[in-house]
C-alpha cells in the first residue's frame, strides 16, 4: 500500500501495454505530471521495438508539463531518481538499452530531498 501521490499511466504501444508508476512528492508530481493520477495514452507505433532511451524522450515530450530538468537530465533520468522495470533495478536490465516488453511495469522513485 503506497499512500503517496502516484500517477498511473496505462497505454499500449506497438501492441504493448505498459504501466508507469511515479513515486514523487505530491507537489513535484503536480509540477512534472500535472498532478494527474491516471492517464490513458497511446504511443505511436514504430518499426523497431521501443527502448528506455526512446521512452524517456517520449515521456519528456508528452507527459512532463514544466521544468523537465527535474526529471530528465541528458538522455537519462536525473540522478537520484530510481527506475524499476518489473520490480527489478534497471541497472540489471541494461538501463537505457532495455527493450520494452509487453505488460512491462516501469516505476520511477525519487530519492531526492523534497521529492
Amino acid at each position: 500500500m503506497h499512500t503517496c501521490n502516484l500517477g498511473k499511466y496505462q497505454f499500449s504501444i506497438f501492441g504493448y501495454r505498459l504501466i508507469f508508476l511515479f513515486f514523487f512528492n505530491s507537489r513535484a508530481s503536480e509540477l512534472l505530471f500535472d498532478g494527474v493520477k491516471e492517464h490513458q495514452v497511446t504511443l505511436p507505433g514504430q518499426s523497431d521495438p521501443w527502448d528506455m532511451k526512446q521512452l524517456l524522450v517520449w515521456i519528456q515530450r508528452n507527459l512532463l508539463k514544466e521544468r523537465p530538468e527535474l526529471f530528465v537530465q541528458g538522455e537519462s533520468v536525473r540522478p537520484g531518481i530510481l527506475v524499476l522495470i518489473n520490480d527489478a533495478d534497471w541497472e540489471l536490465m541494461g538501463e537505457l538499452d532495455y527493450q520494452l516488453q509487453d505488460q512491462d511495469c516501469i516505476v520511477f522513485i525519487s530519492t531526492l530531498h523534497g521529492g
Partner: peptide, 24 residues
Amino acid sequence: AKEIAFYNHMFGVPSVLSPSLTTK
C-alpha cells in the same frame, strides 16, 4: 537512499510524502 527506496517499494512500507521547503 536507494536501498531504502527499494526496500519500501518491494515490501510495501507506506510512506506519506509531504512537500518541503526545497520542493520544486
